[in-house]
Simulated scan of single mutants.
Amino acid sequence: MKTVFKGKKISSIVGILPETISYFDDEVSNYTFPVKQTMRLKKIMGFESHRLAKKDSFASDFCIYGIRHLLEKGVIKREEIGAIIVVTLSPDYFVPQISNIVQGELDFGEDVICLDIAQGCCGFLIGLMQSFMLLDKIQGKKVVLCNVDVLSKKVSHKDRNDFPLSGDGAAVTIVENSKDFSNIYYSMYMDGKRRNALQIPAGGFRMPNNADTAELKDVGDGNLRALDHIHMNGSDVFSFVQKEVPPCIEEILNYSMVQKEDVDYFLFHQPNKFMLQKLREKIDVPKEKLPDDLVVKYGNPSGVSIPMVICDNIAEQLKEHKYQVCLSAFGSGLSWGAIIMELGLLDYCELIESNL
């Protein structure tokens, strides 16, 4: 899918971090591998630290925390909100939806549209697409886009492949109509044939959770995980990213008629540092234009990574200036996509730490 959105902009972003920090150096004894062997991965993969939600903190809590923060700061007013979109792979419940929980807890009007979308790595791009489309139907109102995941609750702490990269967090993005910003060029692709490269086998109706699905087993590579846990096939996802994303970036540049050299920032999903470095080399952009340190500090927060990268790296610049940016995400589904748009002159842009 390729399309153009006109008269839309992002006006504010707040990223929300959990307060709990877990360090890779303190986790090496979790694994069945020799410590020296495990520590070799630290620099290559970007294993440093990650943020983990508390046992009693869930996705809706992060959304409510972020929206309440923006309301208290006067960034947005209640009467301006026309829709709440929540994109997550970690819902509080099957029913009710997180967006409805947020609406009820914050006492928003009954005319506010509530919508949950189950998406992972491409969640920010999917959420923006839905936000842009809704803006055409709620004239004069704004969309509150919440990207949130607490997937560390679904990762085995004895899995050296997946646990060091898991990161929880959220972002609340305000999206609105505007005539002062250029067209937004958008592309998105999906391939369900490769869906099993990233999955949680148990927990749905097809395979409900039970004692057997919760049992930790050596899956053949020395890692211990259960069917209840999320797992990414690293080699398959790496090959997928290197094959599909560079042509996608080239396509969106051609589609938008923007030269690669004229893009100020390439703000990408953050699966791990190694994968991003190889991708950056393949698309041939300078290191200073493609931040890759989010996963080192906070872990991989799934669909939250792009807004969190924005808040962590260029928040201050975006309050005063407007930039040409390329957003790109890739992962679960499998799915991949890219956006060329103007980003800047934001009313608010911060990365904050919560007590969650």
Rank of each mutant, 00 (worst) to 15 (best):
K297R: 10
P247G: 00
I230Y: 13
G74E: 04
E176W: 09
E215G: 01
G82V: 07
D149C: 01
L294Q: 03
I184Y: 09
G220L: 14
L327C: 01
N183I: 02
G204C: 10
F268P: 11
P18S: 12
I252K: 04
V4C: 06
K319I: 14
V14N: 09
Q37L: 05
Y31S: 06
T88L: 03
F33R: 06
A338H: 07
L334Y: 14
R195T: 13
F274T: 03
F181M: 11
I252V: 15
K8W: 12
I174M: 07
I310C: 08
V4P: 00
G140I: 06
V219G: 10
I230S: 10
N254Q: 10
R195Y: 10
V102L: 10
G74I: 00
S57N: 05
I101F: 08
D312F: 01
H229L: 05
P286I: 00
K55Y: 07
P286Q: 01
S239K: 12
C311Y: 02
V4R: 03
N161A: 10
P96G: 09
I84N: 15
A315V: 12
L151F: 15
G66M: 04
L151G: 14
K2T: 06
P96A: 06
S131W: 05
A214W: 01
G299S: 04
S187P: 06
K142W: 01
A315R: 14
E27G: 03
Q97A: 11
D284R: 07
K9W: 01
R280A: 03
Y93M: 08
E79H: 15
A170D: 06
Y185K: 11
